[in-house]
Simulated assay, not measured.
Amino acid sequence: MTRFRPCIDLHAGVVKQIVGSTLSDDPDRPPVENFVAKRSPAEFAALYAQAQLEGGHVIMLGPGNEASALAALAAYPGGLQIGGGINPQNATRYLDAGASHVIVTSYVFRDGRLDEERLAEMVKAVGPRRLVLDLSCRRRAPGGPFYVVTDRWQKFTDLTVDGTTLRRLAASCAEFLVHAVDVEGKQSGVERELVEVLGRESPLPVTYAGGARSLEDLDLVAQLSCGRVDVTVGSALDIFGGGLSFDATVAWDGRQRAAA
């Protein structure tokens, strides 16, 4: 059963919707912002709690987001996952603050390769049942395979998102989170091939993010994945300045649950 999972993306302590491919460490190249919220992170978290939406994620895009993230977790204890700069030293702080899971990407990669020792450190620190591996990815070339990207989606690794990788990592985590970076924040439609791969190959629950802009896109994710992939919607939602009704999306999720 495909579910709608909400998100709270934090940049400089504020809820924003950003075009993912424009994130950079260069201070002279600020990211392209689709939306900057007036509501606080805690208000968004409370909205999701009221709508009984589970398994959403808070992503800290760079430094300066810790206080905002903790406020969101406090507003919806057990209802949100958190990612962005997570490591074995700080992970338990966020779990103790109310996160259901911690989401990790960059820490378990080094020099463009999966670091098995660092992955083992994360598993030891929090246990696989509370760990989500973020395998956000993009193509190196049109039509080619999807490669995991790290460090705010700027650096390619040598790890492809395919059945072999998903099965290999399944013992180390509870879920996967996968942003289709090339369409993230662009409201250009979902990355169909990636959704199909995730639905066909993932042995664990997996959430797809990127490009969804309508209820028809949510239906498409459900269809392409045979109901095995959940979906996040960001910039397209009216709560983030888009044209897709949040209430209608929550109602769509309710119909999914009722049909299960």
Rank of each mutant, 00 (worst) to 15 (best):
E54C: 09
E43D: 15
A97W: 06
C137S: 15
G78W: 05
Y48Q: 10
V58H: 10
L133P: 12
V132G: 03
P145T: 06
A71R: 13
A74T: 00
L73V: 03
E33G: 01
L133I: 00
F35L: 07
N90M: 11
Y107W: 13
R138S: 14
V104P: 00
G127M: 08
R118N: 07
L131K: 08
A67P: 02
E121H: 03
N65H: 08
K38L: 14
L133T: 00
A67R: 15
L47F: 03
V102L: 11
F146G: 02
V102P: 01
A125K: 02
N87M: 06
A125S: 07
G144L: 11
E116V: 07
F146N: 14
R140D: 07
G112A: 01
Y147F: 15
G143V: 04
G144I: 10
M122C: 04
A37P: 02
A51L: 05
Y94Q: 06
R129D: 13
L135I: 02
V102Q: 08
S100T: 12
Q81H: 13
V148P: 00
S100H: 10
P128W: 00
A97S: 12
E116R: 15
A45L: 05
Y94R: 07
N65L: 08
A37N: 10
F109G: 13
P128S: 12
P128I: 01
H101C: 14
Y107L: 06
E121N: 04
A99R: 02
V36L: 07
V108L: 04
R139L: 03
P63Q: 11
L80I: 09
Q52I: 04
D134H: 04
Q89T: 15
E33I: 15
P88A: 08
D96K: 13
L95Y: 02
R140G: 11
Q50S: 10
K124P: 00
A72V: 08
G143M: 05
D115C: 01
L53W: 04
R39F: 01
V126M: 09
M60T: 04
A71Y: 11
D111A: 13
R39D: 12
G62C: 06
G56M: 13
G144K: 02
A125I: 14
R93S: 07
H101Y: 08
L135A: 14
K38G: 14
G55A: 10
V123F: 01
M60A: 12
I82P: 00
L131P: 04
G56P: 14
G78D: 09
L61S: 12
P142K: 11
N90H: 05
L53M: 13
A72R: 08
P63V: 03
M60I: 00
R139W: 02
V104L: 06
P41V: 03
A74D: 07
H57C: 14
G98H: 01
V148C: 06
V123I: 13
I82M: 07
L61F: 12
A97N: 01
A91G: 08
F44I: 08
S100K: 14
L114W: 03
P41K: 08
E43Q: 15
R130H: 13
